[in-house]
């Protein structure tokens, strides 16, 4: 554990807490993309299958469980919890996440899994686990797209929603620093280039948002995206 990774994890947790608070306090899901959170839930469920097979640390296991439960409760609130679910604007949340996110990521994960030869010589179970892990890395990198597209529609960005996306984006940016740190200071560190590539892609997707977020913070005014 290094400081970048810890800050990254805390930023991730913080973003989830901000969103949970926003949903609970405002009892309102307008401007929030259900599709993004369903994608994140799928990311966590496919990545953390190692909860049952590999123990890293108490911290690691607790965080994984916390991510799954908190994301599941976000999905539950937006879908089913009255009165929040009535404020969810389904008509605006239109990104075709199966066709343009889940499908392509599944294809890409299968291709990279077999081309890299990763998992050859392992059991079928381990192969499936590796495949799911690779899939989750790809999917996480673009899971925020439905949310960013929804924001473009609304343009006026609520403070809490803005903060949520800012911390969600900072988390992967901090992970990049963590990978650089580990490369230098951890002997025998094993590189996962798919994770690096997707981590950079994920951070770049937020770049535009970061820019307008910073500008609005500096001006101290309302946050709105340009047309």
């Amino acid at each position: 554990m290094n400081v970048f990774r810890l800050c990254g994890d805390m930023s991730h947790v913080f973003s989830i807490v901000v969103l949970l608070l926003r949903l609970r306090v405002a009892k309102n899901a307008s401007g929030i993309s259900l599709r993004t959170h369903e994608l994140f839930l799928l990311v966590f469920l496919t990545r953390y299958t190692d909860l049952f097979t590999t123990y890293y640390s108490l911290y690691n296991s607790c965080m994984k469980i916390a991510y799954i439960l908190s994301t599941a409760s976000i999905v539950y609130m937006i879908r089913l919890s009255d009165p929040i679910c009535t404020t969810y604007d389904k008509a605006q949340d239109t990104f075709r996440h199966w066709a343009f996110a889940v499908g392509p990521c599944a294809v890409l994960a299968t291709l990279t899994h077999f081309i890299s030869g990763e998992g050859s010589g392992y059991s079928l179970f381990v192969n499936i686990q590796e495949l799911l892990w690779t899939f989750s890395i790809y999917l996480e990198s673009i899971a925020i797209l439905p949310q960013l597209i929804l924001l473009q529609r609304y343009r006026e960005v609520e403070n809490l929603t803005g903060n949520y996306i800012f911390f969600m984006g900072s988390y992967r940016a901090l992970y990049i620093l963590n990978w650089i740190y580990r490369t230098y200071y951890e002997p025998g560190y094993r590189h996962h280039y798919v994770a690096y590539f997707c981590g950079v892609l994920q951070t770049l997707l937020y770049a535009d948002f970061f820019y307008y977020y910073m500008q609005s913070k500096r001006r101290g005014g309302r946050f709105s995206l340009p047309t």
Binding site: D50, M63, R182, E186, G188, Y189, R190, H192, A195
Partner: peptide, 10 residues
């Protein structure tokens, strides 16, 4: 012991 790299991350 060999590091598991970014697989031990979240």
């Amino acid at each position: 012991k060999e590091s598991s790299g970014s697989k031990d991350e979240l």
